[in-house]
Write a protein that binds this DNA or RNA. Structure first.
Length: 468
RNA sequence: GGCGGGGUAGCCAAGUGGUAAGGCCGGGGUCUGCAAAACCCCUAUUCGCGGGUUCGAUUCCCGCCCCCGCCUCCA
């Protein structure tokens, strides 16, 4: 069984075969952030899921060309920049930089491009696409000056979300100023300027205004990746209407199927409830860092549950992640020590085959993949205890771990040990040899005060940097 | 009302027509000057409920209950 994904479009698990005739290059588009605030952990979970796809495709030998859009103009960015008394660009720049930092902290692999909706080249492209849609009868300008997509002109509209448009229940969320539309379900391609937009706006054949959200992705995706993509992903909430709209617009412009595989990540809950500011369970990455959690710990906590399941994010779960990572770290440290005497890798059953990769091949089954890792850890710890693991096998284990890390990226950064700590540790060793236990314990306390934990293990003294 | 996801040990969670991976917690042990850590072992006759098919179902079918999400710009 090769790599396969659950495709939202067909609601079945399908073998992954890229459009590239050579079968190597994968074109992937991932819906990025609207930069009007710091990303919250729910947003970040989606980016983690996209990172997992990206990295696993690479592990499987594909060359991934990935684009993530940056929405830097919409109702919220305009509203909040005006409240802040800043220009739209100055306002969004802060959150854009914060977003890049968050990705780095979580060890998320950068996309090849982060196109911004306000770039003139993309605005122009959007205008051209809208003009094409109007020419072909797929769009019209309404009395309010805005341009809307005519969904009745695209029979496949609703297919991705599996919605029967005739049975749509009015949700009461339809803005009252959109009564000029032919059908309530028609969506905006170009929004006519109004006072709330302030100085934000671009000239177009339909007057001053700004692009609708959906057309942004269609323009940037096709500009950078071509008319047809292999993979397009985002959160489940994007299925309808956003991705549905993207399909309609794009296919009406290009005449070919837009995306081969649609993948959608589930949302997360916090302590069993929907995350919301009013419940006080709304967290950004920096909130968690401030509480002493590391990016690596958050990465693991967000990564360990399969992307199609709602993930219940809890502090107990973070504790869990911290302990489990500690177990991995100890194992890596043991293997590293043991492998020093190795001349080369020697095979060991725990590291043979591709069970880890095979688990991820199955629609990114990370839980099963981590199961493979922890089984290997237990098995080789047992062998180390029994003294039957060879240094060469330990070396093979480290090589295996390194391969897994192409996807997991859970290796520790080796923290440099300050000279003071080394000196204190040396002094303590002398005290211990002299059986001066009181002195030894004092020194241990001093080292602890500097943020390092001393452990006297069978293999000798070990130093660990304590979590902040 | 329509559409989708899910209900597996205290918590998180994988999985299969043949009798339940893994992580955390808990219990026991090894090691240790002490401490801490680490490591090992143990921990679900049972998979929301009721039927059915089957030699056998948690896994297939039917019905029901519960939770979560989407149904026009929220990852």
């Amino acid at each position: 069984m090769g790599l396969r994904f659950l495709n939202t479009l067909t609601r079945t698990v399908e073998p992954f075969v890229p459009l590239d005739p050579a079968g190597r290059e994968v074109r992937m588009y991932t819906c990025g952030p609207t930069i009007y605030n710091y990303a919250h952990i729910g947003n970040l979970r989606s980016y983690m899921f996209e990172d997992l796809i990206h990295r696993h495709l690479e592990l499987r030998g594909f060359t991934v060309k990935r684009v993530m859009n940056i929405t830097d103009v919409d109702d919220k960015t305009i509203r909040d920049s005006r409240r802040a008394g800043l220009s739209l660009g100055a306002f969004t720049e802060v959150y854009l930089q914060a977003f890049y930092e968050d990705l780095k902290t979580l060890r998320i692999k950068p996309a090849d491009a982060y196109p911004r909706a306000t770039s003139s080249e993309y605005i122009e492209r959007m205008i051209r696409m809208i003009a094409t849609l109007i020419e072909r009868g797929h769009a019209y300008q309404a009395e309010d000056g805005s341009v809307y997509f005519r969904i009745s002109s695209f029979p496949a509209y609703g297919r991705l979300a599996n919605l029967d448009l005739d049975e749509l229940r009015p949700s009461g969320r339809v803005a009252s100023d959109e009564y000029e539309k032919e059908s309530v379900a028609d969506f905006a391609l170009w929004k006519a300027w109004d006072e709330a937009d302030g100085d934000v706006g671009w000239e177009s054949p339909w007057g001053r205004g700004r692009p609708g959200w959906h057309i942004e992705c269609s323009a940037m995706a096709t500009a950078l990746l071509g008319d047809q993509l292999d993979i397009h992903c985002g959160g489940v909430d994007n299925i309808f209407p956003h991705h549905e709209a993207e399909i309609a617009q794009t296919e009406c412009c290009t005449g070919v199927p837009f995306v081969k595989y649609w993948l959608h990540g589930e949302h997360l809950l916090v302590e069993g409830q929907k995350m919301s500011k009013s419940l006080g369970n709304f967290y950004t990455l920096r909130d968690l860092l401030d509480k002493g959690w590391s990016g690596r710990e958050v990465r693991f906590a967000l990564l360990r549950v399969n992307y199609r399941l709602q993930l219940n994010f809890t502090f107990a779960g973070l504790e869990d992640a911290r302990t489990a990572l500690g177990r991995i770290d100890e194992w890596v440290a043991r293997l590293t020590d043991h492998a020093r005497a190795a001349t080369g890798p020697e095979s060991h059953p725990a590291f043979e085959g591709e069970r880890f990769e095979a688990a991820l091949d199955d629609d990114l089954n990370i839980s099963a993949a981590l199961g493979v890792l922890f089984e290997a850890i237990r098995e080789t710890n047992r062998a180390l205890d029994a003294g039957i693991l060879t240094p060469g096998q330990a070396r093979a284990g480290l090589d295996w771990w390194s391969r897994l890390n192409h996807v997991l990226v859970l290796d520790t950064e080796a923290a440099a040990i300050p000279a003071v700590v080394t000196a204190l540790l040396e002094e303590r060793q002398q005290a211990r040899l002299a059986k001066e236990w009181k002195r030894s314990d004092e020194l241990r306390d001093q080292i602890a005060a500097l943020g390092w934990e001393v452990k006297d293990t069978k293999e000798g003294v070990k130093l660990t940097k304590k979590a902040a």
